[in-house]
C-alpha cells in the first residue's frame, strides 16, 4: 500500500457553538507524492479544512495525521516543518523588507547555516521566476509577483507536503501554468505531495484526484474525468462545459467527459 501523508478521520468543526458545522465528519487520505485538488463552492469549508490540517484551528472532534504523526499541540511545530501552506491573499503573509529576506524568514527558525539559507533562497526564487526581484520591497510588487514570492518562501523550507489555498488566483494564466509545471517537477523529483484548494477547473482536471466538498461534507472523490461526468452541478473545465451545453440543446454529444483533444477527435470521426 502507498504511504499516506495525510489521514483525516471524522473531522468536525464549527466556528461558534450556536452555529452549524462548517465541516461535518470529513474523512479522506492523501498518498505520498499525490496531487489532490479540493473543490467546492465558497462556504463549502475548503479553507477551514486547510487551517485544520496545519493546526491553526482545532477540531471539535475527529483526528488529523500528517506524515504519520497525530496533529496536536506538541506535534504541530514538527508537522509544520514538513508541511507548508500558501494562502490566497499574499499581502497577509509578508514579513521581510526585501523579497529575499522574506523568503529566508521561515528558515531562520530552523537553525540553518547562513550559506545553506542563501542557497535555498536563490533556488526557491529561481523556481518561481522571481530571482531578479530578490532585492525588491515585497509590498511594491504586483499581486501575481507577491504570490510567487509567498510560494518561494514555503518551497525554500523543502516541505514534503504543500497545501495551496487558492494560492494562484492573482497569477496570469501563463505564470500559473509555469508554476504548476514547476511543482509537478518537484513532485516527480522529490516526491512532493500537493493538496490544492482551487476554483480553477483546468488545474483540477490536470491533478491526480479531486475531492468535492459540499456544505462541509465530502460529496465525492475520484479521478477528474469521473468527477466531471458524475457531478453535474460542479463547475467543469471548458470541454465538459461545452458537452453539457450541447446536451441541454439536445444535440449529439460524447457520452462522458473528454479532454479537449479527445473531443476534437470525436468531432472529426
Amino acid at each position: 500500500m502507498n504511504e499516506q501523508i495525510i489521514q483525516v478521520k471524522d473531522l468536525t468543526f464549527k466556528y461558534e457553538p450556536a452555529k452549524n458545522n462548517t465541516l461535518s465528519s470529513v474523512s479522506f487520505a492523501v498518498n505520498k507524492g499525490e496531487w489532490l485538488s479540493v473543490i467546492g463552492n465558497n462556504g463549502a469549508g475548503k479553507s477551514t479544512l486547510a487551517l485544520l490540517l496545519i493546526g491553526l484551528l482545532k477540531p471539535q472532534s475527529g483526528s488529523v495525521f500528517v506524515c504519520g504523526m497525530p496533529l496536536n499541540e506538541e506535534t504541530k511545530w514538527t508537522i509544520r516543518r514538513h508541511a507548508g501552506i500558501v494562502f490566497q491573499n499574499p499581502d497577509n503573509q509578508f514579513i521581510g523588507a526585501t523579497v529575499q529576506d522574506d523568503v529566508a524568514f521561515g528558515m531562520e527558525n530552523l537553525n540553518m547555516p547562513v550559506e545553506d539559507m542563501r542557497q535555498r533562497v536563490t533556488e526557491a526564487l529561481e523556481l518561481v521566476g522571481m530571482l531578479e526581484h530578490r532585492e525588491a520591497d515585497p509590498s511594491r510588487l504586483s499581486g501575481g509577483q507577491k504570490q510567487r514570492v509567498a510560494i518561494a518562501g514555503v518551497l525554500a523550507l523543502h516541505p514534503d507536503l504543500l497545501i495551496l489555498d487558492e494560492a494562484f488566483v492573482m497569477l496570469d494564466p501563463r505564470s500559473r501554468r509555469e508554476l504548476l509545471a514547476t511543482l509537478k517537477q518537484l513532485r516527480a523529483e522529490q516526491g512532493l505531495t500537493i493538496l490544492s484548494i482551487t476554483h480553477d477547473m483546468n488545474e483540477a482536471a490536470a491533478s491526480d484526484r479531486i475531492l468535492v466538498l459540499k456544505n462541509g461534507s465530502v460529496a465525492n472523490s475520484g479521478l477528474p474525468a469521473d468527477i466531471f461526468s458524475e457531478e453535474m452541478d460542479v463547475e467543469a473545465p471548458f470541454s465538459e462545459r461545452l458537452r453539457r451545453l450541447l446536451m441541454s440543446k439536445e444535440r449529439r454529444t460524447p457520452e462522458s467527459y473528454l479532454t479537449e483533444s479527445e473531443w476534437i477527435q470525436w468531432l472529426c470521426k
Binding site: 467546492g40 465558497n42 490566497q88 499581486g143 488566483v169 492573482m170 476554483h199
Partner: peptide, 12 residues
C-alpha cells in the same frame, strides 16, 4: 482590479 479573484465560478 481583479474583482473576482478567489470567488467560486457561480459567484464570479
Amino acid at each position: 482590479d481583479e474583482p473576482t479573484a478567489g470567488l467560486d465560478p457561480s459567484g464570479k
